[in-house]
């Protein structure tokens, strides 16, 4: 039975099994409740043909990317400074631990009121979803930099600024990276929520709007798109981490083999 241990064999078997169960569900419950693989594919083709799907994917992706990049860019220096300066940390920590329990979706209405119905409110929401996760991860990272590293740098004449730049930042990179990677996931959740409630474009809108026409197959298409978008960006990030940030001890979780 050696052949079953080959990775591609077991993986394709698994996928075939999944497709079979899915098809079975479609047969048992009817295509309106569970659209089968084939009708989902047809639905997808339909949406691709008039260009809506590519447009929606592009829009959702653009929102996530802009909000996530901006959120991370703000979060990284803020997290480092909160972590490094004790006085600031003492004040900021309870606040951060309070905020982190409020999911981005809960803010949708408020953000619409504050930032308007346009792109700003969506990007602000993604920034919110990104910011706190990244900051909290960086805090953990800064707190776990070994004292000996900071001490040795200090006795080799490094200034506080140099210690931040040449010891704390590199030592914290794995934590920054993990934070940014998790934040990517929450960003997708946030954007779908926002698009369902307040948008007339995007994958979230597609999923929400399909209910009006009772097109469950379109909903399935939307779900798959989300899965793939998340999967590919995460893989891309993981690959980037492994290649570029290798020396800082970043390992790609997905690619890790035992």
């Amino acid at each position: 039975m050696r052949w079953i241990e080959k990775k591609w064999v077991s993986v394709s078997l698994l996928w075939i099994a999944v497709l079979c169960i899915w098809q079975l569900g479609a047969v048992v419950y009817g295509p309106d409740v569970i659209p089968g693989p084939w009708s989902t594919l047809k639905g997808g083709q339909e949406l691709l043909a008039d260009g809506t799907l590519t447009k929606y994917i592009g829009i959702s992706f653009y929102r996530v990317l802009v909000g996530w990049v901006l959120g991370s860019l703000v979060a990284i220096p803020v997290g480092l400074i909160i972590g490094k300066v004790n006085v600031i940390r003492i004040f900021a920590e309870p606040f951060l631990n309070f905020i982190r329990f409020i999911p981005p979706i809960a803010f949708i209405t408020l953000f619409l009121v504050w930032f308007g119905i346009g792109e700003q409110s969506k990007i602000a929401l993604i920034m919110y979803a990104t910011f706190f996760i990244v900051v909290l991860n960086i805090l953990t990272g800064v707190m776990s930099v070994e004292e000996d590293k900071i001490r040795s740098a200090r006795s080799m004449g490094a200034s506080e600024w140099q210690i931040l730049l040449h010891v704390i930042v590199p030592a914290t990179i794995p934590y920054i990276f993990t934070g940014v990677r998790i934040a990517m996931g929450t960003s997708y959740m946030a954007i779908i929520g926002a698009e369902m409630i307040a948008s007339n474009e995007g994958v979230g809108y597609l999923i929400w709007n399909s209910r009006l026409f009772f097109r469950t197959d379109w909903i399935f298409v939307g779900l798959f798109c989300l899965g793939f978008m998340g999967f590919f960006t995460d893989r891309l990030l993981g690959w980037f981490g492994k290649k570029v940030l290798f020396r800082y001890g970043v390992v790609s979780v997905a690619g890790k083999r035992r």
Partner: peptide, 21 residues
Amino acid sequence: KPGRDRAVVFQQADSSLFPWL
């Protein structure tokens, strides 16, 4: 405070060396 005139060799090299360098 610490100074350049006094260098320290720590017991644990792993915690004091910079693994990214």
